[in-house]
C-alpha cells in the first residue's frame, strides 16, 4: 500500500519535472532551430542581430559556482568537524541554529552586503591586477561561498553526527586520539553525506540569482578567462531586464528560455546527484 503510494508520488514528481523541462524545451524551440548546437558553443550574444551564443554565461555560471565551492568546502568542512566533534552538545545546538538562521537570510540581503563590503575589498585587494571595477566573477564567487557556507556546515555536521557513537568509542578505546578518530573513522564514514552536502551547495550556487546579479558586473560576451573581470552568468542574464524585452520576439524569447533550460539541467543534475549520494548513505 505505502509502496504503491510512494511509487505514485515518485511518478507524479517525475511527471511534473518532465512537464517543466518540456515547457522550457518547447518555448526555446526557435533558438535551437536558428542556432543549432552553436547556441551552446557560440560566444557572442547580440540580440538585435539575432545572434545567440550562450557559452560565456554557461562558463560564467560554472566558474562562479566552482569558485564558491572551492572556498566554502574546506571552511565549511572544518567548521562542521569543529561543531560536530569538539563543541559540547548544548553549544553545538545553539551554533547550529545560528548557522541555519544564516542559511535562511534572503539572498538579496547577501547581495547588498556584497555591494557594501565585498566589492571595494576585492577592488582594493587585487588592485595591482588592474581590475576595471570591484564587480567581478571573483566577487560573485566569494559572495556565493559565504552564502552556501551555512548549507555546507549544517549538512556536513549532520553527516558527521550520523556516524554511530559506538564507532567513535571503539576507536578511542583502541587508543586513537580524538583527531585520529575523526580522521580515520568519522570522516570516511561521513564522506557520502559530505559529498552530498557539497553537491547540494553547488546546486544552490549555480541557481542563485539576485546576489550574483548585484556583483558580477553583467558583462556580456566575455568568456571568463580571468576571474577579475566582469562576467555574466545564466542567472544574472535571466534576472536582467532583457528578459522582459525578449518576450515579444519568439526567437529572442526562445533564447532566454534556452538559458532557463540549461540552468534547469545543470542545477537539476547536480542536485539529483547530491541527493542520490546522500540517500545511499542512509
Amino acid at each position: 500500500m505505502t509502496r504503491a503510494f510512494s511509487w505514485l508520488l515518485s511518478l507524479g514528481a517525475l511527471a511534473a519535472l518532465a512537464l517543466l523541462l518540456g515547457v522550457f524545451a518547447w518555448q526555446s524551440g526557435p533558438v535551437w532551430q536558428h542556432e543549432g548546437a552553436g547556441y551552446v558553443t557560440g560566444g557572442k550574444w547580440f540580440f538585435r542581430q539575432h545572434e545567440f551564443g550562450a557559452l560565456p554565461m554557461i562558463c560564467g555560471s560554472v566558474v562562479v559556482a566552482l569558485v564558491a565551492l572551492i572556498m566554502a568546502a574546506p571552511l565549511g568542512l572544518g567548521a562542521a568537524v569543529f561543531i560536530a566533534e569538539y563543541l559540547p552538545r548544548r553549544s553545538r545546538l545553539a551554533v547550529k541554529m545560528l548557522v541555519e538562521l544564516l542559511a535562511g537570510v534572503p539572498s538579496v540581503v547577501y547581495g547588498l552586503l556584497g555591494i557594501l563590503l565585498l566589492r571595494d575589498w576585492v577592488y582594493e585587494t587585487f588592485e595591482r591586477f588592474d581590475p576595471l571595477s570591484g564587480d567581478t566573477l571573483l566577487t560573485a564567487g566569494i559572495l556565493l561561498a559565504v552564502m552556501v557556507l551555512p548549507t555546507v556546515v549544517t549538512l556536513a555536521d549532520d553527516a558527521l553526527r550520523a556516524v554511530p557513537a559506538t564507532q567513535r568509542r571503539a576507536a578511542r578505546a583502541l587508543g586513537l586520539t580524538r583527531a585520529e578518530a575523526i580522521w580515520s573513522v568519522c570522516l570516511p564514514q561521513a564522506r557520502r553525506g559530505i559529498g552530498a552536502a557539497l553537491l547540494l551547495s553547488l546546486g544552490r550556487a549555480l541557481g542563485e540569482t539576485i546576489a550574483v546579479f548585484l556583483v558580477v558586473g553583467r558583462q556580456d560576451n566575455n568568456l571568463p578567462v580571468q576571474l577579475l573581470g566582469a562576467g555574466q552568468t545564466l542567472t544574472s542574464k535571466l534576472g536582467g531586464s532583457e528578459t522582459n524585452i525578449a518576450y515579444g520576439d519568439p526567437l529572442h524569447w526562445g533564447a532566454m528560455m534556452g538559458l532557463g533550460l540549461l540552468l534547469l539541467l545543470l542545477t537539476g543534475a547536480v542536485t539529483l546527484l547530491g541527493s542520490l549520494k546522500g540517500r545511499r548513505d542512509a
Binding site: 559506538t166 571503539a170 578505546a173 564514514q189
Partner: peptide, 15 residues
C-alpha cells in the same frame, strides 16, 4: 588505552 584493550557487547567493526 593502548595498554588496555576493550570488547563491547555488540562487536564494533569499522567499515
Amino acid at each position: 588505552r593502548a595498554r588496555i584493550g576493550m570488547l563491547f557487547q555488540q562487536p564494533v567493526i569499522f567499515p
